[in-house]
Design a protein around this nucleic acid. Structure first.
Length: 270
DNA sequence: CAGGTCTCCTGCTAGC
DNA sequence: TGCTAGCAGGAGACCT
């Protein structure tokens, strides 16, 4: 599932393909994907808009257009693929952005992805972007910031790292990796974390995500590929989906925390 | 307010 | 072999 590093990779790849191109037409095949405005307005307002830039905040892709910001969240399986004009649409393609000489199709098997078309002036001050917390590299992400956010929390840190309103960009996979690198048990309640542990979480969040971005950046597949655009981080995982701890050799525990599959080493993560 | 539960959706897998 | 029930999961809605 695309988390911050994958979205970053997709963003950079898309820039090479659609920057400074003008959207001629938009086709929506699955309307619930368009949260705002109505699908009809979405289509008409995007017509003849040029893509000036592509940004990212958390897991949101942000296409900067002449008059709007187009927000796209890939959720579990969303991806973008380039297709020839009028190439037959398959059942998992839900939105198509038509350019002069190709179409950029949004593909999403589980249909969980969502798009918003926002006014440029207010986009960052309204939901969903305004609901997001700090990027991992934001200087305001400090031990004291986390201490304040976690002080009344009885929820496990595993769950809290997924809260996009505190730190944005972490998904279920990197969550496990960050806690493994920090040697913290995922069940630890937010309010019980000490200063050293909070510092460790901040440091390792940056390290893990930076490493993943570098990896994703080196393995972008060609856009024409049916694989779509994504990086390859699986080879780098130390604990998520693993069976043996690479540090101590113990059996990795696989459990569920608030409904999320969780992997950790009982011996290394206290 | 904090936290729990349900929902969306489809491909895959375990089990019979 | 073929079928189905159950599961996975990000984030918002809704309930307690």
């Amino acid at each position: 599932m695309p988390e911050l590093p994958e979205v970053e990779t997709v963003k950079e790849t898309l820039k090479k393909i659609v920057l400074n191109k003008t959207i001629k037409e938009v086709k929506v095949y699955y309307e619930p994907m368009i949260v705002k405005p109505s699908p009809n307005e979405f289509i008409s307002q995007l017509e003849n808009q040029k893509i000036i830039d592509i940004k990212r905040k958390g897991k949101w892709l942000i296409f900067e257009l002449d008059n709007y910001y187009l927000l796209s969240h890939l959720r579990m399986e969303g991806k973008y693929q380039v297709k020839d004009l009028n190439y037959p649409v398959n059942k998992h393609e839900h939105v198509s952005f038509v350019f002069d000489d190709f179409e950029l199709r949004y593909v999403d098997t589980r249909k969980f992805g969502r798009m918003y078309l926002q006014n440029k002036e207010t986009a960052f001050n309204e939901s969903p972007l305004s609901d997001l917390g700090l990027e991992p590299w934001d200087n305001n992400l400090t031990k004291d910031y986390l201490k304040n956010k976690y002080k009344n929390k009885s929820l496990p840190i595993k769950t809290l790292l997924l809260d996009q309103s505190i730190i944005t960009g972490i998904g279920n996979i990197y969550d496990d990796e960050i806690l493994f690198a920090s040697k913290i048990n995922p069940f630890t309640k937010g309010r019980d974390l000490n200063d050293k542990q909070l510092e460790s979480i901040i440091t390792n969040t940056k390290i893990v995500l930076e490493k993943a971005i570098k990896k994703g950046g080196t393995t972008i597949r060609t856009y024409e590929s049916s694989e779509g655009v994504h990086g390859r981080f699986q080879n780098e995982l130390l604990v998520h989906t693993k069976e043996i701890c690479p540090i101590c050799g113990s059996k990795i525990v696989k459990t569920k925390i608030n409904g999320r599959g969780t992997y950790y080493c009982e011996k290394c993560q206290k």
